[in-house]
């Protein structure tokens, strides 16, 4: 399996994903600068978290128009798997690769803590290592993670099973108290219609080692390796 991590000016989780991929793949992912639209053919493209372009205008708005994203969009539309985490999710939403938008957190505060996510389905290349309905512990760290889509769009993604993860309690129950940012229906991650693109606010790459407080993120990278090797 070959993977690429796109590095934007202001990305700061690119090396975390690099380490998580290296450990799961057993080989080195390619790090691709955002101006290099011409990169190797790969089985997986990752858009990392951070504050690309200083979050100017809207989070992810500038990165979504960078040279490399034209290529990422073209490859995603051909079926290449793309994983966008945190700022990567914002970039995917701004690119139109996943539905909806990420707005300022309802509480107006930056939220940085471990929380639980309910895995909505495990028949995807990203989540086969989890059980459907499983509650996994994954950290969030964002100011703009409040997922919004209009009523019609929300119905469409719910009906088509495009919700990947919801914020929940340790026992998997989805309640308003477990919603850290005001996201509609507690949505923490969404797939595109084809299911080859996943955008999520929480950071699985940050909990892949017991020494860091948990390993629930590791199964996502192992799922991808199993599906794409």
């Amino acid at each position: 399996m070959k993977a690429a991590v796109i590095v934007f000016p202001g990305s700061n989780c690119d090396r975390d994903i690099q380490v998580a991929l290296r450990q799961s793949m057993g080989s080195e992912p390619q790090m691709v600068w955002h101006k290099d639209a011409d990169f190797d053919s790969v089985d997986l493209i990752c858009l990392p978290g951070g504050f690309s372009y200083g979050d100017y205008l809207r989070c992810g708005a500038m990165s979504a128009k960078s040279p490399v994203m034209k290529e990422v969009i073209a490859r995603a539309n051909k079926g290449v798997p793309v994983l966008g985490i945190c700022n990567g999710f914002q970039i995917l939403a701004e690119s139109g690769l996943v539905p909806g938008a990420l707005m300022r957190n309802a509480g107006l505060k930056f939220v940085c803590r471990d929380l639980h996510l309910k895995v909505e389905r495990n028949d995807s290349i990203f989540t086969s290592g989890y059980a459907t309905g499983q509650a996994i512990k994954i950290p969030v760290a964002h100011h703009d993670g409040n997922y919004f889509v209009d009523a019609e769009g929300l119905k469409a993604i719910e009906d088509k099973g495009q919700v990947a993860f919801r914020y929940c309690g340790a026992d998997g129950t989805v309640t308003a108290e477990n919603n850290p940012n005001g996201s509609l229906n507690n949505i923490a991650g969404v797939y595109n219609a084809k299911g080859n693109v996943l955008g999520m606010m929480p950071h699985p790459e940050r909990l892949c080692e017991a020494a860091l407080g948990g390993t629930d993120g590791k199964a996502m990278f192992e799922s991808l390796v199993a599906a794409l090797s």
């Binding site: 708005a61 128009k65 938008a101 919004f148 889509v149 209009d150």
Partner: peptide, 9 residues
């Protein structure tokens, strides 16, 4: 349409 506004919101 392309940059200045996000017409989703």
């Amino acid at each position: 349409e392309k940059l200045l506004a996000n017409t989703v919101i």
